[in-house]
Amino acid sequence: MVLKSLSTRQMSWLKGGLFMLGLAPFVRLVAAIFTDQLGANPVEFITRNTGDWTLYLLCLTLAITPLRKLTGWNWLIKLRRMTGLFAFFYVALHFTTFLWFDHAFDVAAMFKDVVKRPFITVGFAAFVLLIPLAVTSTNAMVKRLGGKRWQWLHRLIYIIVPLGVLHFWWMKAAKNNLFQPLLFAVLVGVLLGMRLLWRRKST
């Protein structure tokens, strides 16, 4: 019963803890760079690490509403914005790594690669779709857009996460390593299926 409602102080501590946890992978990555622990292929390590954490956080963002409904912990919804912004932070690092190390900030060459390779195409599409969600994450933007339009815009997450999983799947398929992508696909399928089931029951 205690978990169903938290005081302002408890919520503040919880958000602080979530912030530290969200920042931890980045701190660890920076430490690995400065201690030369990125392995034989540093670019691949950074790309994989930032991409993995993007997917972890996107799935966590998608899981917050189902978890709230199943547990009655309504305070969970207050953690969704920070989780989503950390997902955008890591996907921005992921994209920057791709643009910087793979293309030396040559935007024209980057776009040629995006068009040429389907797994990059879907990954880039997911990144672009995440930008308006991050930009409109503030309370001021919610007021400016209006609640309904804001909600419709943020339903893009239901497209973005599957695109992210597909990007990961195609990348791993080239290496015949589909175990982890399959786990992500099942998890996302369950989370989206739960939403669809609840929506049907409410109509």
Rank of each mutant, 00 (worst) to 15 (best):
V30F: 14
F34P: 01
H94R: 02
V115E: 13
Y158M: 01
L14R: 13
R68I: 03
T83P: 02
T61E: 02
L183N: 15
L62M: 10
A109I: 01
R80Q: 01
M11L: 15
K78N: 07
L182F: 15
R28K: 11
A125G: 01
V43Q: 08
N176R: 05
A140C: 02
S12P: 10
A104G: 04
F89K: 10
V91E: 02
L38R: 05
P162R: 07
V107K: 02
L133K: 08
S137M: 05
L55F: 00
C59T: 08
V190M: 10
A134P: 09
V128W: 13
D36G: 09
F88L: 12
L178D: 10
L29I: 04
F34H: 08
A185M: 11
T138K: 05
K15Q: 15
S137G: 06
F19A: 12
L62D: 01
T96R: 00
M1N: 08
F95P: 03
L196Y: 06
W198Y: 14
P132D: 06
M171T: 07
L191M: 05
P66I: 01
M141K: 10
V43E: 12
G84E: 10
L133G: 09
L76R: 02
M1P: 07
F26Q: 04
L38S: 05
L163D: 05
W198P: 13
Y90Q: 12
N49D: 15
R28L: 14
G147A: 10
D52C: 03
I33D: 14
R117T: 14
L79H: 00
R28T: 12
K116R: 11
L183K: 08
K172E: 12
K69E: 15
V190A: 04
V43A: 11
A134T: 07
P42N: 03
V186Y: 05
Q10R: 15
V165I: 10
I157M: 13
W73D: 06
F179G: 01
M20V: 15
D52E: 11
F101W: 12
V188Q: 06
F179C: 03
T54L: 05
I77M: 11
N176G: 01
A174S: 06
V186M: 04
L3I: 06
F184H: 07
L163M: 10
E44R: 12
T50H: 07
F101D: 14
Q10G: 13
G39F: 04
M11S: 12
P181L: 03
W169G: 06
V43P: 00
F34V: 10
F86G: 04
V114A: 12
L18F: 12
A185H: 03
M1G: 08
W152V: 08
N176C: 00
N139G: 00
L166A: 13
R149I: 02
M110Y: 09
M20A: 15
V107T: 05
K116D: 12
E44P: 05
R28V: 12
F98W: 15
A92C: 09
A140H: 04
R155M: 09
L23F: 11
R80F: 00
